[in-house]
Amino acid sequence: MLLSELKTLYKLEWRQFSRSQGQWLFPVMLFILVIVLFTVGIDPEAHRLQQMAPAVIWCAFLLSLLLALDHMWRDDYQNGVLEQMLLHSESPLQLLLHRVVVRWVLSIVPLLLCLPLAISMLQMPMTIFMPSLLALAAGSFVFWSLGSALSALTLNDRRPALMSLLLLPMAVPIVIFGSRVIKQSAMGESVSGLVLMLVGLSILSLSITPWIMFAGMRLNLD
């Protein structure tokens, strides 16, 4: 893919994002609301919140991403833009890959900006911020790329919850490793191994999922 083509794609994605009438705010609001509901619903003793905080942060984060994933391909599929992009692109796999990356960045940055707020609401020490940020970024990319592939495979399926129901079980290892990062960093232990594991998983998903997306789209376009 040429650099000029890439620049055009990134500009196009940014323009769509900035014109989305605040759609990007919905995942952010869901993330904050889930955290708020947990904090008001649980006994306000600090240690209870702290015990549950890692799982709460991860579940809220991944559920919020599900909202953003809903728009990954569907709008462009329905208005015919997606098939024309695939038809006329000289490197459709790269096109899909870059689109997944740029949409992931645009979706997680607002969520990650809310992370300090979530940490303080759950009465966790601010020392967990950086390890949590790295783990959420790497883990969410695995989740995002798997979700993008499943979205591509289910483009023609009209059952709205199907993609979510298929995707959430795949999130189990991400939540296990990701929650451990937050738990261990709160106790002052080293988490570099766990973070590297998540980074490795995200690289693996990056190398496999574009093929699945492309195949899924071709199947749905036929």
């Binding site: 769509q16 462009d76 015919g80």
Partner: peptide
Amino acid sequence: SHQQTLIPH
């Protein structure tokens, strides 16, 4: 195609 292949925003 018979779709207009445009992005409304």
